[in-house]
């Protein structure tokens, strides 16, 4: 296959992944609404009983309807997971295609478009992988909504044609450093979703809309377990492999470059999250808030710094444009 074909394949696979994520999202929403109406009918039934209606008549009907709803929820939940898995596979083909389209072949992490499609891939793939172990089914619409939005933004706003890596990026430390950073980013994002759900559930404990979301202790535990996984990965990516590579490529292992500063800020905030969970009075709600602050710093670093800071050496291979002053001096 020629490089060009790989490039086209990559684009088509990403588009296909987007469409399938969308279908999976629809299924997940159907599942949620089934849970929601079940929660409503449970409340209504309780109220009816409370009002003194003959219990046997009213109770029988919602039960039948509930059974149907439950079946529907389970069916669409499974369908959503299946579609998500298919979309993740397409997404993966899209990533591989990007790397194969470059000459010489390389890892697909040369620019913002590629970082973004890789980051969203890890979020969705981690969701599928941890689905069973951490009982993440409730997360489907959040994860899918997030992945879909990020993927669309990447395709519409960040797309760039395939290009070779610049020399400084041409190092195996790039692979190690970026794999760690992207995996941690995906993990922190999933953990952040759990923390956000925690805050919502904490604020609106009885909302029917949140019927699908597990109870607070379970949310807290899931959030912690994901963060506890992502934190050491981030530590390795940002504070070990990053400086080693920076030493080789730029001549000093820590430069206080804006990207490094924000990676450090993110690290410190997540260390704060882990401390918050161990500190009386900070457990639960406050810890969840700290986790979300951490997530905000993470994504600000990922996207914001590239736009707001011009001094960053991590400007992803953007060539320096000739300044207006210099152009003026010729002809």
């Amino acid at each position: 296959m020629s490089d060009h074909t790989w490039g086209v394949l990559s684009n088509q696979a990403i588009t296909a992944a987007g469409v399938v994520y969308f279908l999976a999202l629809l299924c997940a929403l159907v599942e949620w609404s089934a849970w929601q109406s079940r929660a409503r009918s449970a409340v209504a039934a309780k109220e009816l009983v409370g009002a003194g209606a003959p219990a046997d008549e009213t109770a029988a009907e919602p039960n039948a309807a509930d059974a149907v709803r439950e079946q529907r929820a389970a069916l669409f939940g499974r369908l959503s997971l299946l579609l998500t898995a298919i979309a993740v596979a397409c997404h993966f083909v899209g990533l591989v295609g990007r790397g194969m389209a470059a000459d010489p072949n390389r890892v697909p992490w040369g620019n913002m478009y590629e970082f973004t499609i890789s980051g969203s891939f890890v979020v969705a793939a981690a969701y599928v992988a941890l689905h069973r172990k951490l009982k993440l089914a409730w997360m489907a619409p959040w994860v899918l909504g997030f992945t879909l939005v990020v993927l669309m933004l990447a395709v519409v706003g960040l797309y760039e044609p395939v290009a070779p890596l610049t020399e400084a990026l041409n190092s195996y430390w790039l692979v190690i450093h970026v794999v760690a950073a992207i995996i941690a980013t995906g993990g922190f994002t999933l953990g952040g979703i759990a923390s956000a759900a925690y805050l919502l559930k904490n604020r609106f404990p009885d909302a029917a809309l949140l019927a699908r979301v597990p109870d607070l202790p379970a949310l807290d535990r899931v959030s912690y377990r994901i963060h506890a996984f992502a934190f050491p990965v981030w530590t390795f990516g940002v504070l070990i492999s990053g400086p080693i590579w920076a030493h080789d490529a730029w001549g000093s292992y820590w430069n206080w470059d804006p990207k490094e500063v924000w990676a450090f800020i993110t690290w410190v905030v997540y260390a704060g999250y882990l401390h918050a969970r161990a500190t009386a009075g900070w457990k639960g709600k406050k810890a969840a808030i700290v986790a979300l602050i951490g997530l905000a710093t993470l994504w600000f670093n990922f996207i914001g710094i590239n736009y707001f800071s011009s001094t960053s050496q991590h400007s992803y291979a953007a060539p320096a444009a000739p300044t207006a002053e210099l152009v003026e001096t010729t002809r």
Partner: peptide, 21 residues
């Protein structure tokens, strides 16, 4: 105390911000 450690950590994060902007 742990609480102070936590606050100092968050303060350190905050203090690092201006240097990046």
């Amino acid at each position: 105390s742990m609480r102070t450690a936590l606050i100092l950590l968050l303060l350190l994060a905050l203090a690092a911000v201006p240097g990046s902007l």
